[in-house]
Amino acid sequence: MPLFSWAHFGVEHTFDPQYKFVSSPLFSPSVLAGLRSLVALYSLCTICTVLGFDVAAGDGKSFLSYFTLLSLVGLCAYYCAAAVQTFFYARYGRYPLRRWPRLLQGLHVLLQSTVIVFPIIVTIVYWALLSSGESFSTTYNSWANISQHALNSVYALFEILLTNAPPAPWLAVPLQIVLLAGYLGVAYITHATQGFYTYSFLDPAKGPILAAYIIGIAAGDILVFTLVRGVVALRQRWAIRSGRLRSASDGEVGGAGEAIDEWEEIERPVMGSGKTEGAPRVIDSGVGEGEVV
């Protein structure tokens, strides 16, 4: 087997045959789409507000120099995309990403894997190493730090616990490490161009401690990824046993070896359960105009 294959990355011949990325064991697709939209809207408002205050203080040019804000932008982008795809699924019984190129599907899987890992790392690192009395010194500081360093993990837990999204592929781990390493470049470019370190522990003057921090964060990413993946697997097992999600052996719609035809019949799961008994059948053209029969 090759080191990399689309199957290893969670992108089968038919992407997401059980519609896990757009369904929930507890909510109907419409409710899930609405909740994802709220997260996307609030995170976008957070980004715009923080950017506005930074610009007003003359710090706007360093806005994207912080991993916290970069990860929040990625989280916002994911929830915006996921909300749109889920709205399509709620309305038509399928969603556009399933017909898009595998590269875009793989990027969606990778982005989702960062959304359930990076916010947790940001929260741990900030409250363990970087927080101080200034964190709650003003109303704005309190709101900004809670929104960026606490609610971000709440958003991650929402995706981990309250959706049917499958466990992230193991191949996402080295790619996440590459992204973390890439951020080091951003941090040192910021120092070279603006004269400061975004995080004090990145100062090379700290010597061996710097290496310990870098290795520790990389190890933390692997540890958090593994723990989150285990929780997602347990949640998925519970959903299958409780009848809220069909297992892969139950003859799911659009199985891995089945091509998506221009016209096909699919069944929309019962709201919040993943079952299809008694649900209306939707004849879908693949364009988004479906007829219920």
Score class of each variant (00 low, 15 high):
residue 1 M to R: 14
residue 2 P to F: 06
residue 3 L to P: 00
residue 4 F to M: 14
residue 5 S to I: 08
residue 7 A to S: 07
residue 7 A to M: 07
residue 11 V to L: 07
residue 11 V to C: 04
residue 12 E to Y: 11
residue 16 D to T: 14
residue 17 P to I: 11
residue 21 F to D: 06
residue 25 P to K: 13
residue 25 P to V: 14
residue 28 S to F: 06
residue 29 P to A: 08
residue 30 S to Y: 02
residue 31 V to H: 07
residue 32 L to M: 01
residue 32 L to V: 11
residue 34 G to W: 05
residue 36 R to K: 12
residue 37 S to E: 03
residue 38 L to K: 11
residue 38 L to C: 05
residue 39 V to M: 07
residue 40 A to W: 01
residue 41 L to D: 10
residue 43 S to K: 00
residue 44 L to G: 05
residue 48 C to I: 13
residue 51 L to G: 04
residue 52 G to T: 14
residue 54 D to N: 09
residue 56 A to R: 13
residue 58 G to D: 02
residue 58 G to F: 02
residue 60 G to F: 07
residue 62 S to V: 15
residue 63 F to N: 09
residue 63 F to A: 10
residue 64 L to T: 13
residue 67 F to D: 00
residue 69 L to D: 02
residue 69 L to N: 08
residue 72 L to Q: 11
residue 76 C to N: 04
residue 77 A to C: 03
residue 80 C to E: 08
residue 82 A to E: 04
residue 85 Q to H: 00
residue 88 F to A: 08
residue 93 G to N: 10
residue 95 Y to F: 08
residue 96 P to Q: 09
residue 96 P to H: 07
residue 98 R to E: 13
residue 99 R to W: 12
residue 99 R to D: 10
residue 101 P to I: 12
residue 102 R to H: 06
residue 103 L to K: 10
residue 103 L to S: 05
residue 109 V to D: 02
residue 109 V to C: 04
residue 113 S to G: 03
residue 115 V to M: 03
residue 120 I to P: 03
residue 123 T to C: 02
residue 127 W to T: 08
residue 130 L to A: 10
residue 130 L to H: 00
residue 132 S to K: 01
residue 133 G to H: 09
residue 135 S to A: 10
residue 139 T to E: 07
residue 142 S to V: 12
residue 143 W to N: 04
residue 149 H to Q: 01
residue 150 A to N: 01
residue 150 A to Y: 02
residue 152 N to S: 12
residue 153 S to W: 07
residue 154 V to T: 06
residue 158 F to Q: 00
residue 166 P to H: 11
residue 168 A to P: 02
residue 171 L to H: 12
residue 172 A to C: 14
residue 172 A to F: 07
residue 172 A to Q: 09
residue 174 P to S: 08
residue 174 P to N: 11
residue 175 L to M: 03
residue 177 I to G: 03
residue 178 V to H: 05
residue 178 V to W: 08
residue 178 V to L: 14
residue 180 L to A: 07
residue 187 A to T: 14
residue 187 A to Q: 11
residue 188 Y to Q: 04
residue 188 Y to A: 01
residue 193 T to N: 09
residue 194 Q to S: 10
residue 203 D to H: 05
residue 206 K to N: 09
residue 210 L to K: 09
residue 216 G to F: 04
residue 220 G to S: 12
residue 221 D to S: 12
residue 222 I to Q: 01
residue 223 L to D: 03
residue 228 V to C: 00
residue 230 G to T: 14
residue 235 R to K: 15
residue 236 Q to C: 07
residue 237 R to T: 15
residue 238 W to V: 14
residue 240 I to N: 10
residue 240 I to Y: 10
residue 241 R to C: 04
residue 244 R to E: 13
residue 245 L to E: 12
residue 245 L to C: 01
residue 246 R to A: 11
residue 247 S to G: 15
residue 248 A to K: 12
residue 250 D to R: 08
residue 251 G to I: 04
residue 253 V to A: 12
residue 255 G to P: 15
residue 255 G to S: 14
residue 255 G to T: 15
residue 256 A to M: 11
residue 260 I to R: 13
residue 260 I to M: 15
residue 264 E to G: 07
residue 268 R to M: 11
residue 268 R to Q: 15
residue 271 M to L: 07
residue 274 G to I: 15
residue 275 K to G: 03
residue 277 E to C: 00
residue 280 P to Q: 05
residue 281 R to K: 15
residue 281 R to N: 12
residue 285 S to P: 11
residue 292 V to W: 09
